[in-house]
């Protein structure tokens, strides 16, 4: 397998933690809530899933528990940021620190242990195509994440639920006047985002690299938040952005494997540098951000 085939085959799996977390953050931000705790939510989901899978509970239970745990922690965010109307930036940072701390605490006795990942499910016929065939042999979570992307895109494009969430984020006062429960919608959006961040963390720790190491999320939660900006709050573009980051992280691995003479630290910081550069390019287009951005993002709602 050459480097190109390696990247094509692995891109979607590498993209999945970014994709799931960014889709969750998308829903929360569309409802007008900026939750910066994604890194901590992912870390918590990752450790919970790992412990359950390691103890023999299986992947399904691991994912469910991770989603529940991260949703619960994101509800703490919601109670403080929405209920008590605290500064969303500060609450998000605190949740991030708390989640990372809890993950290190719970994972202490599991350091460097490994579990078994998930088998690849191939699409018959398609996965035999040369060069790009690897694209069609993915594990079940990748397939489900693609389905989730389409579902969230369709929700915002075609359903009333999507419209209500967007109305609550664009103009909460008007949404309230129309009789929609602004705070309840925001709570639900945050909890949904938390659950997806938990799944994202679980995928990272029990499928993509099925081993436990403290700090293994390594900034992916933050990149997911940046991806929402890259994707200008659209599920389709977020998917493309996640693929880009999947490819970038795999390119670093491929470069190291082929013995390319680039320092491994430079390769490790590549995703962060790409984030900074792309963020600069997209954000400098102020019209694009204004057009697609969420008007009341980060502002507390008070009647």
């Amino acid at each position: 397998m050459n480097a190109v085939e390696f990247i094509i085959a692995g891109m979607l799996a590498a993209a999945t933690p970014f994709l799931l977390a960014a889709l969750g953050e998308l829903v929360a931000e569309r409802a007008g809530v900026l939750n910066l705790g994604v890194e901590g939510l992912m870390a918590l989901g990752a450790v919970i899933a790992f412990i359950i899978v390691y103890q023999g509970g299986g992947h399904l239970l691991g994912f469910l528990a991770a989603g529940l745990a991260s949703a619960a922690l994101s509800l703490v965010f919601a109670v403080i940021a929405l209920g008590f109307r605290a500064n969303q930036v500060a609450v998000g940072l605190a949740i991030g620190i708390l989640g990372q701390g809890l993950s290190a605490l719970f994972g202490k006795s599991y350091e460097s242990l490994t579990v078994k990942g998930l088998p690849k499910l191939s699409l018959p016929g398609l996965s035999d195509i040369p060069v790009i065939g690897g694209l069609f042999a993915q594990d079940v979570v990748v397939w489900l994440s693609l389905a989730a992307t389409v579902a969230i895109w369709a929700m915002f494009a075609y359903t009333k639920t999507g419209l209500v969430v967007r109305a609550v984020g664009e103009n909460p006062k008007a949404a309230r006047a129309l009789g929609y429960p602004v705070i309840a919608v925001r709570f639900a959006a945050v909890a949904f985002g938390g659950a997806l961040a938990g799944f994202a963390g679980a995928y990272a720790s029990v499928v993509y690299t099925p081993l436990w190491a403290d700090g293994m999320i390594a900034g992916r939660g933050w990149i997911a938040i940046a991806l929402v900006v890259f994707g200008t709050w659209l599920a389709s573009r977020i998917f493309l952005g996640a693929c880009l980051f999947g490819a970038v992280s795999l390119a670093s691995l491929a470069a190291q494997a082929t013995g390319l003479d680039v320092s491994s630290q430079l390769l490790s910081s590549l995703p962060y540098l790409v984030t900074v550069i792309v963020l600069g390019i997209i954000s400098s287009n102020r019209r694009l951000l204004k057009l697609n951005g969420v008007a009341s993002l980060g502002e507390p709602f008070e009647r």
């Binding site: 910066l36 930036v89 390594a218 900034g219 933050w222 990149i223 938040i225 940046a226 900006v229 630290q265 430079l266 490790s268 910081s269 962060y272 540098l273 984030t275 900074v276 963020l279 600069g280 390019i281 954000s283 400098s284 102020r286 951000l289």
Partner: peptide, 21 residues
């Protein structure tokens, strides 16, 4: 200031780069 990028994300990413440096 020049590129209108969110300072939270940029400063954090640069912190991760600094650790690698």
């Amino acid at each position: 200031v020049k590129l209108n990028a969110n300072e939270i994300l940029v400063s954090l990413m640069l912190a991760l780069v600094a650790a690698q440096l």
